[in-house]
C-alpha cells in the first residue's frame, strides 16, 4: 500500500443553538467518526461550537467562478423579490 493520505473532510460548526452550521475548515480522517473527533479537537478548542457536521470533501459539488455571471447576476435585476421594493402607505400595520 502506498502511503495513503486519509481522505479530506469539510467541517461545519454550529456556534450556538438556532443558527446555521458554518464552514470552518477541514481535517483528514479515515472515517466519519474520526473526522468528527478530529474536527472537535481542531476547531472547537476554545468552545467555538455545540454541533459539528463533517462532509467528505469529494462529495461536495460547487459552482465555478466562470459561472458567476450566468448564475448570480440575473437575480440582480429582480428587486421585486425584496420587501423594500414595495411602497406601503404609512399606518398600514403587520405587512
Amino acid at each position: 500500500m502506498s502511503d495513503t493520505q486519509w481522505p479530506l473532510w469539510e467541517v461545519f460548526v454550529q456556534a450556538n443553538p438556532g443558527i446555521p452550521h458554518k464552514h470552518v475548515g477541514n481535517v483528514h480522517a479515515a472515517d466519519a467518526e474520526m473526522a468528527i473527533q478530529n474536527a472537535r479537537d481542531v476547531y472547537t478548542r476554545r468552545s467555538e461550537g455545540i454541533s459539528i457536521w463533517v462532509v467528505p470533501a469529494a462529495a461536495i459539488s460547487a459552482s465555478s467562478p466562470e459561472d458567476q455571471g450566468a448564475f448570480f447576476e440575473p437575480s440582480n435585476d429582480k428587486p421585486y423579490r425584496h420587501p423594500t421594493f414595495y411602497k406601503i402607505p404609512e399606518g398600514v400595520k403587520y405587512l
Binding site: W6, H28, A29, D41, V42
Partner: peptide, 11 residues
C-alpha cells in the same frame, strides 16, 4: 502518527 492524532493526544 499523524497531525490530527497529535492534537487529539495533547488534548
Amino acid at each position: 502518527p499523524i497531525l490530527e492524532e497529535d492534537i487529539a493526544l495533547i488534548n
